[in-house]
Simulated assay, not measured.
Amino acid sequence: MPKDIDALVALNRDPGLLLDDRHVVQCLPTDDSLDLLADIPNGYFTDDWSPFDG
């Protein structure tokens, strides 16, 4: 358990430990909420949320 707490403390001090060096952002210029819903990450990657998450 102390190792878990130490890991959480380290992560809070340096969030970059968890993040990748490269970040990709996609912009979707639309006024239609259905387009925004369709653009939600869809599981191509293991950490993507589905429309049912969040």
Rank of each mutant, 00 (worst) to 15 (best):
D21C: 03
R22Q: 12
P2Y: 04
P15F: 00
N12M: 09
S33K: 05
D21L: 06
F45V: 07
L34M: 10
K3Q: 08
W49Y: 12
Q26P: 00
W49R: 07
T30E: 01
L28S: 07
D53I: 04
M1I: 01
K3C: 02
F45C: 10
L11D: 09
D14E: 13
D6S: 07
W49F: 11
S33D: 13
D39V: 02
D4C: 02
P41L: 02
T46G: 09
D14N: 12
T46E: 15
D39P: 01
L19F: 09
G16T: 12
T30S: 07
L11R: 06
D4K: 05
P2M: 04
F52K: 15
P15Y: 01
V24R: 14
F45G: 11
G43T: 04
D53G: 01
D14C: 01
P2K: 07
Q26C: 07
D32I: 00
L11Y: 05
S33W: 11
T46W: 13
N12T: 13
A7V: 09
Y44S: 14
D14W: 02
L28H: 12
I40F: 06
D48R: 03
T30A: 01
D20L: 08
T46S: 11
L18C: 04
Y44V: 04
V24E: 15
L19E: 12
I40Y: 04
D39Y: 07
D47V: 05
G54T: 12
N42K: 14
M1T: 03
D53S: 05
D35T: 01
L37S: 08
P29F: 04
D35N: 02
L28R: 12
L37F: 05
N42M: 15
K3R: 08
L11W: 06
D48F: 03
P51W: 08
I40M: 10
D48H: 06
D6C: 02
G54E: 14
N42D: 15
S50N: 09
D4V: 03
P29K: 05
R13P: 00
A10V: 08
L19G: 02
I40D: 03
A7G: 08
L11F: 04
D4R: 08
G43W: 08
F45Q: 15
A10P: 13
I5A: 08
V25P: 00
Y44L: 12
L18K: 04
L11K: 06
F45M: 13
N42R: 14
R13Y: 08
T46F: 11
C27K: 14
D31I: 06
K3H: 03
F45Y: 13
A10Q: 13
D47N: 10
A38S: 02
D39F: 05
T46I: 12
S33Y: 09
H23L: 07
D35F: 00
L11G: 04
T46L: 15
